[in-house]
Design a protein around this nucleic acid. Structure first.
Length: 281
DNA sequence: CGCTCGGCCTGTGCGC
DNA sequence: TGCGCACAGGCCGAGC
């Protein structure tokens, strides 16, 4: 579920609260999610937090960085005794931290802490030299992102070069960075394009509609603080609201407000796929 | 090379 | 009520 809007929501919170803090200790509770040398962390100050696609990078002042991918169910929760009470988190989806899903804890200056929780344990945290981050396969092979590198012309070329169905193409991080199942379904609905359409079969008009729709749904997701359908929360443990505004995702059986047909669900590339058979062509 | 599919995991919700 | 199973879907590696 965490896609560009969710990870960007998380990045903004991490940047706001972590930049300037020093890491005083690290507790690893589930070793398999962590790689790197913890000695590179102790005493280092966090100077920046960036996002590349669905990946996060926390840069330190000693030449090292912490790369994080929260995959499906990862959470980064910040706790700080100095935060005002209302920021101390009303969090149905988190409860108290640490909990049985807490796999790593960063102790920070000012007695603050950052907890990494992950129910399904798919996520990872890697410490390596900052100049080596881009050599990690995930970052090295990441395609251009909407809003930044992905121009309409590039998008046209990516579509034209692929015989595959358009939806799996949108979700292919090597082709386009940041889009996952929720926003792929919603963008295709907004553009009026069926998920199964061969990517190279889109007309120029459809390409443009899809390009604009992609940016529209991602922007909307970000404005609502992401989708918390499952376990996503921001750095204070608070849920986003985009799940209340899904266009097509999860809408099977409901009536399309645009044409009156009933949303259907199918499987495409092993993923739940939601579409309106009436107005997506 | 490009694509598809299974594996990694656990919780949830369904049918029986 | 309990059990088994399908499903959730991001990424990676194997295989076609």
């Amino acid at each position: 579920m965490p896609e560009l809007p969710e990870v960007e929501t998380l990045r903004r919170g991490l940047h706001r609260y972590l930049v300037g803090l020093t890491i005083t200790d690290v507790t690893i509770l589930l070793p398999k999610i962590f790689t790197g040398d913890t000695n590179a962390l102790i005493g280092a100050k966090i100077i920046d937090v960036s996002r590349y696609g669905k990946g996060l990078v926390m840069e330190l002042n000693n030449g090292y960085s912490i790369a994080v991918h929260i995959k499906m169910t990862g959470q980064l929760i910040y706790q700080d005794p100095q935060l005002p009470q209302e920021a101390q988190v009303s969090r149905e989806k988190v409860g108290t931290v640490p909990n049985k899903f807490t796999h790593l804890i960063f102790s920070l200056s000012h007695n603050a802490r950052l907890y990494y929780n992950d129910i399904r344990q798919f996520g990872w945290i890697k410490v390596l030299r900052t100049d080596r981050i881009k050599s990690l396969p995930f970052f090295k092979e990441l395609g251009p992102e909407p809003f930044t590198g992905l121009t309409f012309v590039k998008f046209q070329h990516i579509l034209a070069a692929s015989k595959t169905a358009v939806k799996p193409l949108l979700m292919n991080q090597k082709k386009i960075g940041g889009i996952g199942n929720i926003y792929a379904n919603d963008a295709l609905y907004l553009a009026g394009v069926l998920p199964t359409r061969p990517a190279q079969s889109l007309t120029k008009e459809e390409q443009k509609k899809l390009y604009d729709a992609m940016e529209t749904v991602l922007k909307k997701g970000l404005e609502y603080g992401g989708a918390s359908e499952m376990t996503f929360v921001n750095v204070l443990g608070q849920e986003g609201l985009y799940q209340e505004h899904f266009l097509a995702y999860g809408q099977q059986g409901t009536v399309c407000t645009r044409c009156g047909a009933t949303f259907k669900k199918s499987m495409l590339g092993g993923r739940g796929t939601y579409y309106c058979p009436g107005c997506q062509k």
